[in-house]
Design a protein around this nucleic acid. Structure first.
Lengths: 335, 335
DNA sequence: ACTCTTGCCGTAAACGTTTACGAATGTATT
DNA sequence: AATACATTCGTAAACGTTTACGGCAAGAGT
């Protein structure tokens, strides 16, 4: 319960004014090396820790950024988060973890909280495309970069995988393998990632002269049970229209799809081929071997943080940049 | 770039002193309902957001807690984190995410940072058992609860699964199934969770009159590639001493083990049975069906936060409590 | 009509820092 | 010896809140 000493305690101990202590600890030139060393030694001995709250108040900078993501439980995000976090510690920043559970309202409340906590910047993943509240944040001038979420706003920077291209590659690969009836199982419809992957899907069909079959396009949420549920429905419908391949908008959905397929006595990839998106770690397990579109998750996290730093340090406008990362189709054994 | 209004701006607009604004917004009784409403309305219109940094400085409370965990990439921790986070938002708290990558030094540096940021409390998962720096933190009086990490310190509260019991159940189950040569593959030796699970393992052997075979006890780190590596080594050694079952100290290790077993042309569970620990979501996948000891991860997170709240609100000492949660053996198809 | 409450609000201090400004001393320049 | 300048440090203001204290007006009690 020993109370932490303040800068004044250190000053008293050293017999100088607390301004001098501050200057000594921050290595200002206008204090002699001698007293500087003496003060630093005393501060160490006393276990002095600068109060970052007080520092933040006067410096108007908290060395803190908020990370708003929809679902820390989806293995995609921890990988990204780790990249962000690693870059953050190197830069001396700490991050607030804000999990929205895909709830736009909770996301909005988090904005207010983070603004109140005076974060220096924001990294936001998708929760929905309802951007009315996002506009408010961007207008407030707080530096923000979006990950895997495209926002149509002048000064917003986004780091996203080329969803259209990735989906297109995946579906065209399936077409090359001879598939003609390819289903699309998406996540929440109001998430741009889901919409763009659908767009890549339709584009691939178009490019190869295949007709769009609306009954083969289903959306739910980016979770495993959603994929399981949807695929079961697809399989229950008339047999003649059963797809021979499924492109799932993320790996969790794909895992649900696989489970449904197997439980219906069908085999993968013989009866139905499955391709996912994200390439989470478990996609590479020998038992899974999911063919999927890979994203550089960890590097995406690092990149997100470093561009945020540019915004913060640059001070200028966020000039609406949109950084596109390249997807890579990883062919394994479910296709 | 519109600058956020302060309480003084609101006061000027409302024609009152800023003290009155503060009182109105905090619903103090000594301001008339009339002006209260008027001020609140004006504050809303101006988009006023209280500066939590300034509030924290005077109230000596930041509504912020630090979460220090070793590996956000291990699916065990996101589940716990989600529980913590959900409980935190309900209580109006925000959490700092601190990932140590199992690095004790990084953990130690995070202590200082979080103390400087004046967190109201700390939730700490295991990084190592090197507790010299932990003692410093506990002595500082900051309210702390440990998850899945037992600390021998007077005023520390821990929430842990009964590792000994869980491991014992798992191994005795294997013994009942007729196994006599059961290997133990652990995580870092300086993690109490790993040590206690080893303890449960030996206890189960003892209880059933089985001799300990040191050559069947291996440790590495709590990661999949570690399990893969160790299991390969075990299989490379002389065939006559090959185990017929493996108890892995967590599910990630077990997944690595399974991969190694299969790659060596052996089948599970016929040639070698495998049991894990944690019951991460992927253990229940139809392709995996891992027999494992289940932990109530989400609830553990909620519990961790609520007991932290008790410590903070109670103000008293953390009275060295140790809350033991019950493990549940989930039998699937790898045993 | 006087004091006593009561209700409402403003003044100012405090939280722990950083930093502009000024003061004091010593050294160099003329 | 007088001036100028550099070095080193202290004083005080500022950051945006909360809150103890005091003041003032209005109503109640005598």
């Amino acid at each position: 319960m020993s109370v932490i000493p303040t800068i004044k305690d250190v000053a008293r101990e050293a017999g100088v004014s607390y301004a001098t202590v501050s200057r000594a600890l921050n290595d200002h030139p206008e204090v002699s090396d001698e007293t500087k060393k003496r003060i630093i030694k005393i501060a160490l001995e006393m276990g002095y820790q600068p109060n970052a709250i007080a520092q933040g108040l006067v410096k108007k900078e908290t060395k803190t950024v908020g990370l708003i993501i929809p679902d820390i439980t989806n293995p995609f995000f921890p990988e990204v988060a780790r990249g962000i976090e690693d870059a953050a510690v190197e830069a001396g920043y700490t991050i607030f973890l804000c999990n929205t559970n895909w709830d736009a309202q909770r996301e909005e409340r988090y904005f207010d909280v983070l603004i109140q906590k005076q974060v220096d910047g924001l990294i936001i993943g998708p929760s929905s495309e309802e951007v009315s509240h996002l506009g408010r944040v961007l207008d407030s001038g707080i530096k923000t970069v979006f990950i895997s979420r495209a926002i149509n706003h002048a000064n917003s920077t986004s780091i996203i995988i080329d969803n259209i291209l990735g989906a297109q590659q995946a579906v065209e690969y399936l077409i090359q393998r001879g598939h003609r009836k390819i289903a699309f199982i998406g996540g929440q419809e109001d998430i741009s990632a889901s919409r763009e992957r659908l767009q890549g899907y339709t584009q691939a069909l178009n490019n190869n002269g295949l007709a769009l079959d609306e009954s083969l396009i289903k959306t739910g949420s980016f979770k495993r049970d959603s994929g399981y549920f949807i695929m079961n429905q697809l399989l229950k419908s008339d047999d003649c229209n059963r797809p021979t391949a499924v492109f799932a908008a993320n790996d969790l959905l794909a895992l649900g799809v696989i489970q449904a397929v197997k439980e219906n006595g069908l085999s993968i990839p013989e009866d139905i081929a499955v391709v996912g998106f994200d390439d989470i770690e478990f996609a590479s397990l020998p038992e899974i071997q999911l063919t999927t579109v890979s994203q550089p998750k960890y590097d995406m996290g690092r990149l997100a943080f470093s561009t945020l730093m540019e915004l913060i340090r640059g001070g200028g406008y966020s000039s609406g940049r949109k950084i596109l990362l390249d997807p890579v189709l990883v062919v394994r054994q479910t296709s």
